[in-house]
Amino acid sequence: MYPNPSTVEALEDAALLAEVQGRSLWADARTRFFRNKAAVVSLVVLALIALFALFGQFLTQYERDTVDFALMGANAHKGAPSFETGHYFGTDNSGRDLFARVVQGTGISLMVGIVGAMVAVIVGTLYGAVAGYFGGRIDNIMMRIVDVLMSIPFMFVLILMLVIFGRSIFMLFLGIGLISWLDMARIARGQTLTIKNKEFVEVAHATGVHPMKIILRHIVPNLLGIVIVYATLLVPSMIIFESFISFLGLGVQEPNTSLGALISEGAGSMQYGTLWQLIFPLIFFVLTIFSFFFVGDGLRDALDPKDR
């Protein structure tokens, strides 16, 4: 005998309800994140900035390294931003289109931040998890290394490296990769220390699972929340770090550019009244940093188990 249609419907509804009620940790975090207005707005702004960096070049007819000799030296009165000439953000001292250069600068700055965060996530998490899981002497030595590396003034060492091996984007990435994982390693270790005493790790250990497999299968996934939060907060500090070096002229080299180099250029020529050279890179810099901070804060509120 078939159940009558209304019962089937009710059962279906119940199934749907059950589906709605069975929320995972991540779904929970997602709703919490999307309730935070500042974080959501920042996420949208970040998406727009990323789109600008990726596709902004198609909006302008100028290449970023084309020098307009008619504007060179006449930047202050002919190079102002305007829609008629097609230089939306004006031109720089050499008559290059600032819009195209800001597009590239934003792109490089974002890339630096993301590479730094990725190194931190991969190296830092594994390093911290291994140190925390094994504990004892291994932990002691590994963390002492981190302490030693952290007490070195890295900006100076990185500039030394840039001088010796030549100033290139690759060296910049290498330098940023060298420092970005240190904090993450400490955070991951601290979390691992609490996780490794949980029952599921004990069970895995008792059934004879290989330690590396325990770390990768059981510990690292449980670190992910906090790792994502700190990675997001790490991106802006990496961007600031790179801009610092580029501001001094030691980072990204011409004809390439980054936001720090553009800000430096704008600051160097502001006494001639060409303020657009300073303001447009600054707007993008400030917006990017702000958005990352707010998204990071939103993620922390959503994911950090301490605040629940």
């Binding site: 802006p236 800000i263 810099f285 901070f293």
Partner: peptide
Amino acid sequence: QVLPNFVMAP
């Protein structure tokens, strides 16, 4: 937070 020294100075 978004005003590091190289932004503040100019």
